[in-house]
Amino acid sequence: MTIDWWTLGLQAVNFAILVWLLRRFLYAPVRRVIAARKREVEAAQEAAAAACATAEEEARRLREARAALEAERQGVLDQAAAEAAETAKAALAEARAAAAVQVEKAQAAIAAERQAALEAAQGDLAALATGLAGRILQDTAATIAPGLFLDGLADTLARQPEAERARLAADMAAPGAVATVVTASPLPPEDRAAWSARLLPLLGGQGSLGFEVDPDLLGGAELRVAHSQLKFGWADRLAAAKRAMVGNERA
């Protein structure tokens, strides 16, 4: 057995050279590539982390924006609800006011209608009553002697104020002055003298007394002096009673 020392030495040198060669052309490039890839991966991870952080920030911003929008929406809804409530309240108040006006108008109309109906009923009733009374008085006036009304007319004339009586006396003092007595039925001639004797002194004792018939008086008598009338007829009393019944005038 022999060992070739040249070969042994050359193989050792060859291996050392191969170590150097592979270190330069294999291991170093591979480690560089791996390191570069590692850097790329780390950079990609950092970029992904940054993108993730950005996305999270964006998501947080969107959540905040959504919350703000929700708050704004709620605010708008609240405001709309308040405005709607206010509008409804105003509309309700307006409706109530309008209804009150309508009710008031209706009540007024009802009252007016009621008053009108009442007045119409009163008028009808007064007309009916005065009509009945007029027919009764017309029937009874025929049975009553007109002379019975002399006392009443004389009392009425006597109760006139002094100034009125003075004015009547002045009218009667005029030349040819005639005081006219109007009755519902003609006075008998014998009563006319009594009427003249009774009434002329109350009119100042001057002039004369004339007589006229007016069936519309129903009963009683009227005294007409110049432009003055002294009414003591039943028709006037019925008219006054009718006015009092319909409320236009108190009897």
């Binding site: 070739d4 040249w6 070969t7 050359l10 193989q11 060859n14 291996f15 050279i17 191969l18 060669l21 592979l22 052309f25 294999l26 490039p29 591979v30 560089r32 590539v33 570069a36 890839r37 790329e40």
Partner: peptide
């Protein structure tokens, strides 16, 4: 120079050449 040395040189050349060709423009 023995055949073993010559073969070793060939192996060295082969490994170096393959490494150089494959990794001379190494990228990730």
């Amino acid at each position: 120079i023995s055949p073993a040395v010559a073969t070793t040189w060939g192996i060295m050349a082969l490994l170096t050449l393959v490494s150089w060709l494959a990794l001379r423009r190494a990228t990730p």
